[in-house]
């Protein structure tokens, strides 16, 4: 009797495994849309998981966004189906200017995706960090850089403060737990934006490591606390 039940179970399992598995109806998306947010080809640098964009695909009933995030080095990449898309950045607190069709309504970029595509999103940032020099020596990190104001007309914005951040991992920013030490300088205290110097002492790292990651950033005034950064640098002592 027992053997019979086992047989039946076995046959049932066999039957299930044979007949139940069909391939999924839909193929997964295969086309990659990738690139970076750039000003004249140079990638902008952000905080991790801070700013993103939205993609809308034409041709379906309801409208819903495919939300995407820019990586700290300004790059993005999305796996998509072929089709017509619109790309937009709805968050007005990004540290660059995104055109608006009418005041308050963000503009969009039309993208026709038939094959994988690499495209840079050209924007005009409020500030760019030029020639950042970050060096480590004897338990100290020194940084010098130039804050270039790109938007100089009335829509430009001031500097709230500048800062040098260091962290144990490559996630370095003003965000909580994304820096082990910072050195700040108020925007009003900057005498020469072309030559800003910041330095800090490296605290004891637990567990010890012989390298740190560092970057400098500019906090832009009246922009909801948004920063723009220099590329992350790995410093080894």
């Amino acid at each position: 009797m027992k053997i019979k039940i086992y047989h039946i179970l076995f046959i049932a399992l066999f039957a299930i495994s044979i007949f139940s598995c069909k391939k999924d109806n839909y193929k997964p998306p295969t086309l990659t849309l990738s690139g970076k947010v750039a000003y004249k080809g140079e990638a902008l640098q952000f905080q991790y998981n801070q700013f993103g964009f939205e993609l809308y695909q034409y041709g379906f009933g309801r409208v819903g966004a495919i939300g995407q995030i820019f990586a700290p080095d300004g790059t993005f990449s999305a796996l998509l189906f072929a089709g017509d898309y619109k790309l937009t950045i709805p968050n007005a607190t990004v540290p660059f200017k995104w055109n608006q069709t009418v005041p308050g309504i963000p503009d969009s970029i039309a993208i026709n995706l038939t094959a994988s595509k690499t495209m840079d999103i050209e924007v005009i940032p409020f500030y760019m960090i030029r020639t950042p020099q970050i060096t480590a020596s004897a338990g100290k990190v020194n940084a010098t850089f130039k804050a270039e104001k790109i938007i100089t007309d009335a829509t430009g914005k001031g500097i709230e403060k500048v800062a040098l951040f260091i962290n144990k991992t490559q996630f370095v920013s003003s965000g909580n737990n994304e820096s082990v030490q910072t050195a700040e300088l108020d925007g009003a205290a900057i005498t020469d934006p072309n030559n800003i110097t910041l330095s800090l002492s490296v605290p004891a790292l637990v567990p010890t490591q012989t390298y740190i990651f560092a970057r400098v950033g500019i906090k832009i005034k009246d922009l909801g606390g948004s920063w723009i950064y220099s590329p992350v640098q790995k410093l080894t002592f």
């Binding site: 309801r62 409208v63 819903g64 966004a65 709805p90 968050n91 007005a92 607190t93 308050g104 965000g175 909580n176 909801g224 606390g225």
Partner: peptide, 28 residues
């Protein structure tokens, strides 16, 4: 951390999808 996008709570895409006349909140 309170961001500009937190000043007005998000209206879900289920709502904006069902009624395209609903405009989204700023800075989200």
């Amino acid at each position: 951390k309170f961001q500009f996008g937190n000043y007005y709570s998000q209206i879900g895409s289920d709502v904006t999808g069902a009624n395209p006349k609903i405009v989204k909140q700023p800075n989200q």
